[in-house]
């Protein structure tokens, strides 16, 4: 079991999410400067947050790849929220951005099977999607974290 998150870990987590919400991609350097922390402290918090599945660092760079519901890299889920565009990791997370921010969102994502654009979102607090749209969850919950990038 992962160790409990420290107060610093929680501050780092919050800064990561706020950076995404502002429409930017978080970096360890940016978090360090924003919070007045040492680089090693931020790196340690990244490790703690990754161990608890709060963030997923990119395997090559160590920077945030995912901080659910946000993605640092382009995905098929480009979500419009408050006049800004952010990337969600999946349709679950696209709707999750609306829930986390308690606001409306919209996104258009291609059907993986037919490439037909599917419009969906939350309007005045009510979720909607193109008629006939279905969500396919391809990986069972016990195996989600075997390869979270694929999931």
């Amino acid at each position: 079991m992962a160790a409990p998150l420290s107060a610093t870990d929680l501050r780092v987590r919050r800064e990561i999410l706020e950076t995404f919400i502002a429409g930017h991609i978080p970096t360890r350097l940016g978090v360090m400067r924003a919070l007045g922390l040492e680089y090693a402290e931020v790196s340690a918090s990244y490790a703690a947050l990754a161990a608890t599945h709060v963030i997923v660092p990119h395997p090559d760079t160590g920077e945030v790849w995912m901080a659910m519901p946000f993605s640092a890299v382009p995905t098929p889920f480009n979500v419009m929220v408050g006049g800004r565009a952010v990337w969600a990791n999946c349709v679950w997370d696209a709707f999750g951005i609306a829930a986390a921010l308690d606001t409306d969102v919209s996104f258009v994502s291609p059907c993986p099977a037919s490439d037909t654009p599917i419009a969906a979102g939350v309007r005045r607090g009510v979720a909607y999607a193109s008629p006939g749209a279905v969500v396919h969850v391809g990986v069972p919950a016990p195996r989600w974290w075997d390869d979270i990038g694929f999931t």
């Binding site: 659910m68 519901p69 349709v91 679950w92 997370d93 696209a94 709707f95 999750g96 951005i97 609306a98 829930a99 986390a100 308690d102 939350v122 979720a127 969500v135």
Partner: peptide, 10 residues
Amino acid sequence: MAALARRWYR
């Protein structure tokens, strides 16, 4: 999915 997301992320 939206109902799940609401409970998961709110």
